[in-house]
Design a protein around this nucleic acid. Structure first.
Length: 430
RNA sequence: GCGGCUAUAGUUCAGUGGCAGAACGCCGGUCUGUGGCACCGGAUGUCGUGGGUUCGACCCCCACUAGCCGCCCCA
């Protein structure tokens, strides 16, 4: 019989690697707490329309990468609902914001999430069909200050801090403004106009993009195309006064707190809901998938899915990519499994029961204890104990009767006799 | 979705149209209440899956599956 394998693009995370995952998530939670974000957990699947209307019907994500199915109709007369595994989490958070009328509090909502997302893409290193994102959103009514450039700067400063505390070095922050909901269409029109002139001189991909998604031409990496792309109109020239001032204030606030950034007028993000500030933190050494995280402002998203006006800004970090980066930097704290404080070796089957009692005592005292097997030869107990723990506690007939335990430290080789009552304390010592 | 590379022991990888290999790891012994180090010995396996060519296929051909790299896109 053929063994069943994990589905394509999915994988198991095993110890000790999971310790690194826990470390990353714990660091994120700690930093979010200092910035007063609360955790939100939204469903893993949602109504398909949520993603179609927020992320955008024409985006790659919605048009070809979603896991979508028709749910069973509850009654003959009822139409089956179309459901989709979430391909990202911002839409779900904004849906929850609307559904629970969180804007009615009059305060900014600051929410973070950690969890799996699903996109049916071709797998590659750093890209999986089930992948994990750590993200956060600041959203609220305009009266709560949700449109303030201070919020953008605060989020970006938090991200710089978080990456620093994770130990990620050499990141770069690319920053841009894609303009308001009315700026963008004007810019796209101008871009299409300009592309009519130069498109024939561009690479095949760009000629296609010029038709399907003109903004993406700006992202082209072909060296030969660059001189022509330079001649295209810049989004900055199409920003209205409000957007221009807003962006200048974001940049000034970042300067004030010393967060370095690189203006990138070509930074175009693939989700339709982004307005004004957009950003991306990248790291070399990740190959083609070099983005550690991306995000931006989405001033019209709430309204696009039937909610009140609720401007917001947020980001999503790729946890898989943080893991890869930290592993590449050899700062993975869990290359080796942690050793237990003690390995209790029952010598003979007759001692097993009492060895379990002893292990319970030590564990309740807070020690990390491995319990061996009374059927092992003593040599094997030492071999196994040496791999699992810093010290071995022999528990044979002699120890059971006398109440004096035999403890050997593997590193020093020193062997001592310790009364059972003092054992927990003796094992605490490094 | 498109193009390329790859798939052999637990792991990293050699290999040849004619008996399946190394290193590390694992198991056992030297050593019956003493690990690491050393020495000795042992097992590693549907050679990714399914077809085809051939007297004979791990090797050549085809398909499939999976991973990696690039494109697309994105975290």
């Amino acid at each position: 019989m053929k063994a069943i394998q994990a589905a394509r693009g999915t994988r198991d995370l095993l110890p000790p690697e999971t310790e690194l995952w826990n470390h990353i998530e714990a660091t994120a939670r700690r930093v979010f707490a200092r910035y007063c974000f609360g955790e939100i957990r939204t469903p893993i699947f949602e109504d398909t329309q949520l993603f179609a209307r927020s992320v955008g019907e024409e985006t790659d994500i919605v048009s070809k990468e979603m896991y979508t199915w028709e749910d069973r109709a509850r009654a003959q007369s009822e139409k089956a609902q179309s459901l989709t595994l979430r391909p990202e989490n911002t839409a779900g958070v904004v849906r929850a914001y609307i559904e629970h009328k969180l804007g009615e509090s009059g305060l900014l909502q600051k929410l973070y999430y950690i969890g799996p997302q699903f996109r049916r893409e071709r797998p590659q290193k750093g890209r999986y069909r089930q992948f994990y994102q750590i993200g956060a959103e600041v959203i609220g009514p305009t009266s709560a200050g949700s449109e303030s450039p201070l919020r953008d700067a605060e989020v970006l400063e938090m991200l710089a801090t978080l990456l620093g505390e994770l130990g990620i070095v050499d990141w770069k922050l690319y920053l841009n403004s894609v303009g308001s909901a009315s700026d963008r269409p004007r810019y796209v029109l101008a871009l299409q106009e300009a592309l009519k002139e130069i498109a024939p001189k561009l690479c095949a991909d760009c000629q296609r993009r010029a038709q399907t998604n003109p903004l993406r031409v700006l992202d082209c990496k072909i060296p030969e195309d660059q001189p022509f792309i330079e001649t295209l109109p810049k989004i900055a020239e199409f920003l209205d006064a409000n957007s221009r001032v807003h962006f200048a204030q974001v940049c000034a606030a970042l300067d004030a707190c010393g967060v370095p950034f690189i203006l990138n007028p070509r930074l175009v993000r693939g989700l339709d809901y982004y307005t004004r500030t957009t950003f991306e933190f990248v790291h070399a050494g990740l190959g083609a998938q070099n983005a550690l995280l991306g995000g931006g402002r989405y001033d019209g998203l709430s309204e696009a899915i039937g909610g009140p006006k609720a401007p917001g800004i947020g980001f999503a970090m790729g946890a898989d990519r943080l893991v890869l980066t930290l592993q590449a930097q050899q700062e993975a704290p869990s290359a080796m499994p942690r050793l237990a404080d003690a390995y209790i070796a029952p010598l003979g089957e007759a001692q097993q029961e009492q060895a379990l009692v002893l292990a319970r005592e030590l564990r309740q005292a807070g020690l990390r204890v491995e319990l061996g097997d009374g059927n092992f030869r003593i040599k094997k107990s030492f071999e196994v104990g040496n791999r699992l723990a810093r010290r071995i506690v022999l528990f044979g007939e002699e120890e059971a009767q006398s109440g004096i335990m035999t403890v050997k430290d593997f590193a020093s080789g020193a062997q001592t006799k310790v009364p059972r009552a003092e054992l927990a304390q003796a094992l605490q010592r490094k």
